[in-house]
Write a protein that binds this DNA or RNA. Sequence first.
DNA 1: AACGACATCAACCGCACAGAG
DNA 2: TCTCTGTGCGGTTGATGTCGT
Length: 232
Amino acid sequence: MGRAPCCSKVGLHRGPWTPREDALLTKYIQAHGKGQWRSLPKTAGLLRCGKSCRLRWMNYLRPDIKRGNITPEEDDLIIRMHSLLGNRWSLIAGRLPGRTDNEIKNYWNTHLSKKLRNQGTDPNTHDKLTEAPEKKKGRKKNKQKSTENNKGSEKTLVYLPKPIRVKALSSCIPRTDSTLTLDSNSATTASTSQEKVQSPEAETKEVNMVWGVSDNIGDNGGIGISLVKTMT
DNA sequence: AACGACATCAACCGCACAGAG
DNA sequence: TCTCTGTGCGGTTGATGTCGT
């Protein structure tokens, strides 16, 4: 918003989408399918850049989108997935039917990181904070940016594996939102060599547990994650 | 009621990867 | 092998809503 455009977007509409633009985009995708984002705006009659169209569709217009009302179960799942995967929002979103990476990212930044901090857990490392959780009385005076928040936890440096792209993720981990049931034991497993998360959602009902995580970067750059569950 | 501070979230950006030529 | 194009991701911004004084 405040930055210079990455490509020539002179004459293109920016900012919030209007219902008319939404309708145009939806209509076009319903008729032609998604893809070809670059040329889509032109053919659909939209004065937007392709990226913007894609984002709008993926995050808000897709018919299978479920917005708001994140359940405590989803809450818990997000937290555990984040402890395993870090800020790999798209991977986390892939495990939450109808949720988008953007929504989860926002939800994490606004709610969950705060919640964890109040519980005395470092939202970045998921370790126990040494200092007492900050007591919030009313609203804070100084607005802290997320980057500054990260600097605050500079005591314990944790080297999470560098976020990697998982090739053809959509085909490996179906985002068909029917594959995951939060409270069932028949959870899906990611069965690729690059990403293997052993159905943490299967244990959502366990309350007092500790997850030990060891991330191994494989030879092919993939992540091997092994979970060690310890009941407390 | 008015104002300022803070919270939320939609949208943007740059970067990296994959595939085609 | 290199370049170009399309796509997807994570980080960040800023408009707007909400709350406290």
